[in-house]
Amino acid sequence: GGTTSGLGELPSGWEQRFTPEGRAYFVDHNTRTTTWVDPRRQQ
């Protein structure tokens, strides 16, 4: 941990993952979708 950059926890059902290249993306298990956009930035 320690790399949350002050955004806090992800919404319920979300998970942060990384591509083999090390790029972060976000998985929404509620809708079984993925996005490059941090859901915390859409609030």
Rank of each mutant, 00 (worst) to 15 (best):
G1P: 08
G2H: 11
G2T: 14
G2E: 11
G2F: 09
G2S: 14
G2Q: 08
G2P: 06
T3D: 14
T3M: 12
T3F: 11
T3W: 07
T3S: 12
T3V: 12
T4L: 10
T4E: 14
T4C: 12
T4Y: 02
T4R: 10
S5Y: 13
S5G: 09
S5A: 08
S5H: 12
G6S: 14
G6N: 14
G6E: 14
L7I: 12
G8D: 13
G8L: 09
G8M: 11
G8V: 10
G8R: 08
E9C: 09
E9D: 13
E9Y: 07
E9G: 10
E9Q: 05
E9H: 03
L10V: 04
L10N: 02
P11C: 01
P11V: 00
S12Y: 05
S12H: 10
G13K: 06
G13L: 03
G13E: 03
G13I: 00
W14V: 08
E15M: 04
E15V: 06
E15A: 05
Q16V: 10
Q16T: 09
R17Q: 12
R17M: 13
R17W: 09
R17S: 11
F18M: 14
F18E: 14
F18V: 12
F18D: 13
F18N: 15
T19W: 00
T19R: 01
T19A: 08
P20S: 14
P20C: 08
E21P: 04
E21W: 05
E21L: 05
E21H: 15
G22S: 06
G22K: 15
R23F: 11
R23Q: 15
R23C: 14
R23H: 15
A24L: 11
A24T: 12
A24G: 11
Y25T: 02
Y25M: 05
Y25A: 00
F26C: 01
F26V: 01
F26Y: 14
V27I: 07
V27N: 03
V27F: 13
V27R: 03
V27P: 00
D28A: 01
D28E: 03
D28L: 00
H29E: 06
H29S: 06
H29A: 07
H29N: 13
N30A: 09
N30V: 07
N30D: 08
N30C: 07
N30Q: 07
N30M: 09
N30S: 09
T31Y: 01
T31L: 06
T31S: 10
R32K: 13
R32L: 07
R32M: 10
T33L: 08
T33A: 07
T33R: 05
T33S: 13
T33G: 04
T33W: 03
T34V: 06
T34Y: 00
T34K: 04
T34E: 04
T34A: 06
T35H: 04
T35S: 11
T35C: 05
T35M: 03
T35L: 00
T35Y: 02
T35P: 00
W36N: 07
W36D: 07
W36H: 10
W36S: 06
W36Q: 06
V37S: 10
V37C: 12
V37N: 12
D38Y: 03
D38G: 03
D38V: 02
P39I: 01
P39S: 00
P39W: 00
R40K: 04
R40V: 04
R40M: 07
R40T: 06
R40L: 05
R41T: 14
R41P: 14
R41M: 13
R41S: 14
Q42W: 13
Q43E: 15
